[in-house]
Amino acid sequence: MHSSRRDFLKLTGIALIGAAVPDALLPAGLAPAWAGAPGFRPDVRALKAARWGMVIDLAKCRPDCTDCIAACHAAHNVPAFGNPKDEIAWIRRETFGRIFPAQVHRHLEPRRQAGPVIALCNHCANPPCVRVCPTGATFRRPDGIVMMDYHRCIGCRFCIAACPYGARGMNYRDPRPFIRRIDPGFPTRTRGVVEKCNFCVERLAVGKPPACVAACPYGALTFGDLEAPDSAVRRAIAGRTVLRRKPELGTEPQVYYTL
């Protein structure tokens, strides 16, 4: 068949218009096999919030207890490399003086300064880690959880540099040999990805509170919707003096500490 340049250009234009038509508009016979049929929906058991947040009551936290850390790290297969340089912790116990250095003064009682403070990802409303992530692996969900999609992490560690709270850790080696007991309910990570606290999205999705909150024997951790005036977290901070980590940076941390 002889076809002129003019015919070819015409055909190209028609094909481009055809490609622009959304699948949904096509008659059933022409639609691709994938269009239309199956779909996804959230689990009805899922807990929902306009803005998830956590309140940590420092008066209730005991220095001899690490139940929240153990529960979190067991539930999420967090590796223990046994080397402070490579440490990965989704939630850690620090001292008051290290977490709130601006609150330290000459007359602060040493006992208070060395008191335990639980530190985890602040799930900032203005998260610098999300802004610097070049692949969109770290993103903020509509309910405020700053989450990592490990499928997309390329291990560039910009987020580690951007996070003012040291909430992130990098898997410099294959983490599997360093996980004491692999819980099959949650994936491990692989070499070359960053990881951090996810506010237990996988537990919220099936109607359960975060593992650390459920594990705390003293009720020091409260979790809930910061936008709901009658929520547990709002009641926990009502009328209390509240500290947040480095609020002057403008990251709007959503983990609140009550004294």
């Binding site: 049929a37 199956p38 779909g39 996804f40 929906r41 959230p42 689990d43 899922a46 993103f139 969900r141 989450m147 999609d149 499928h151 099959p184 309910g185 994936p187 999205v201 999705a205």
Partner: peptide, 29 residues
Amino acid sequence: ADWRDASTRDGRRIYVARDGREIEASLSQ
């Protein structure tokens, strides 16, 4: 890949198959 994106990015973890069954979108589970 669709399961991965729907559950991780959108939080929609239940897959509705062509025959109407609803299945947890999870490789290991």
